[in-house]
């Protein structure tokens, strides 16, 4: 894994969230991630697990299992081995097209994650019309 890239991610996230990085550079915790409308509570942790071959490989996103979505079904939340967390399925997001997080106006991976969190009943936020408009709105 490329720790330099992870440090860049850390610095970028730090401008917006309280961030913790594990010593082994395998996990980045955003303590006060601002979840989109419909999630209860709106501010809660989200953590990113970096794979061994990051940034070649896509990181995994996890959200608290007791986080509730109040406006309908959720299709992206999957069981995982970490107690208290659920993996947020992002396999539909083409990792090659995005950086994890950027400081510029380009759409990054976390933007698309946010879009899927905003429309958790949609299987692919890059294809369905509502999330597309969401992406346009946030930029």
């Amino acid at each position: 894994m490329n720790e330099r890239q992870i440090h860049l991610d850390y610095h970028t996230f730090s401008s917006q969230y309280r961030v913790r990085l594990s010593e082994g550079h395998t996990r980045l915790l955003l303590e006060n991630y601002d979840y989109p409308d419909g999630w209860q509570p709106r501010e809660a942790p989200l953590f990113i697990r970096y794979p061994d071959a990051y940034p070649r490989m896509q990181p995994a996103i996890y959200i608290p299992e007791n986080l509730h979505y109040t406006q309908g079904p959720v299709v992206h939340r999957m069981q995982c081995k970490f107690d208290g967390w659920k993996r947020w399925c992002t396999h539909h997001i083409p990792w090659e097209r995005f950086e994890l997080v950027t400081t510029d106006d380009n759409i990054d991976f976390m933007d698309v994650v946010r879009a899927s969190l905003a429309h958790p009943s949609v299987r692919n936020p890059l294809q369905d019309p509502a999330p597309k408009s969401f992406l346009q709105r946030i930029h």
């Binding site: 610095h11 594990s22 007791n66």
Partner: peptide, 29 residues
């Protein structure tokens, strides 16, 4: 290390999960 709102919603296993591999860092730019 977290504020009240976050603490309430932190998954119960967070302590065990991060205990072995977590460093606290200042949240400065």
């Amino acid at each position: 290390q977290t504020d009240r709102t976050t603490r309430d919603w932190f998954p119960p296993a967070v302590t065990a999960f991060f205990a072995s591999d977590l460093a606290q860092h200042p949240t400065t730019d």
